[in-house]
């Protein structure tokens, strides 16, 4: 049942994404309204799926690649909805909702059965560590979408060539503000995620930090966002520079999450394709 729910939400994210894209092309309000409804329904079903899976497995089900990808899709969709409603930024959907769909469909192609918990993961730290990081990463995903929108819009204003997107995209200032807000929320989450991970590592592996590829890439990601936050607060990095950094930062997030799992062997390899 929960596997079906988790996979079925992919369809909701797909329809939601298509509707948001339809909206940005035609500017028909109904597209955005329905898109939001589908995404909301997807999030509700998705969360219900995870609740059922939690009940069956007896542990927080974010321990293999299927679960992680699916959960990431859920947090991205959720974070997007919060920002969309807060800023009434319907065009954002065309840039962020497809991310939720992409992770969701990736997960849908993986076997979804409950596989049992690796002994090393059986800890209170599991939900804390993983939730903090996924929510933080989802917020960065929103910043990534806003960053792309910023670059597209900025290019038009700067080059004085207004294409069809000019009217559709929001103002530069709003997009920059989303960048900043996401940073101030995502960065503390990322920081706490790494710290909790480190404490847990001390319990589980007997060392706070062992330069495992996941840890190394987390640190790189953290340094990128730390640099962006610092630049913003001290010398006023904003606009294009901030947008580019938000995009690079999210690429680092993706590599830390997927690239490391799929390409580099290490202690964190609970969720590679072979499992």
């Amino acid at each position: 049942m929960h596997v079906l729910l988790l996979k079925a939400t992919t369809a909701f994210y797909l329809v939601g994404s298509v509707l948001y894209l339809y909206f940005i092309v035609t500017l028909k309000e109904r597209g955005a309204r329905l898109g939001r409804m589908f995404l909301m329904a997807g999030v509700v079903l998705h969360a219900a799926g995870f609740a059922l899976r939690y009940a069956e497995a007896g542990y927080t089900p974010v321990t293999n690649l299927f679960e992680s990808l699916s959960f990431f899709a859920l947090t991205i969709a959720g974070a997007f909805l919060v920002v969309e409603i807060r800023y009434n930024l319907r065009t954002l959907g065309a840039f962020v909702a497809p991310l939720a769909f992409a992770f969701s469909i990736f997960a849908a192609f993986l076997p979804g059965e409950v596989a049992g918990l690796a002994p090393a993961l059986n800890s209170y730290w599991l939900p804390i560590h993983v939730l903090l990081l996924f929510i933080g990463d989802a917020v960065f995903a929103v910043a990534f979408g806003a960053g792309i929108m910023y670059l597209l819009q900025e290019k038009q204003v700067k080059s004085k060539r207004m294409g069809p997107l000019f009217r559709r995209l929001p103002s530069l200032e709003v997009l920059d503000e989303i960048n900043y807000r996401c940073l101030t929320i995502g960065f503390p989450l990322l920081t706490m995620g790494i710290i909790t991970g480190s404490i847990w590592a001390e319990y589980a592996w007997g060392s706070y930090w062992s330069w495992d590829p996941k840890e190394t890439w987390s640190l790189i990601t953290w340094l990128l966002y730390a640099a962006l936050l610092h630049g913003r607060l001290t010398v006023g990095w904003r606009g294009r520079k901030a947008a580019i950094l938000a995009i690079i930062g999210f690429c680092a997030v993706l590599f830390t999450f997927l690239g490391v799992n799929l390409l580099l062997p290490g202690l964190h390899s609970y969720s590679n394709l072979s499992r």
Partner: peptide, 9 residues
């Protein structure tokens, strides 16, 4: 219109 696209509010 341009000012609105740059500054929003």
């Amino acid at each position: 219109e341009l000012a609105r696209k740059i500054f929003g509010e």
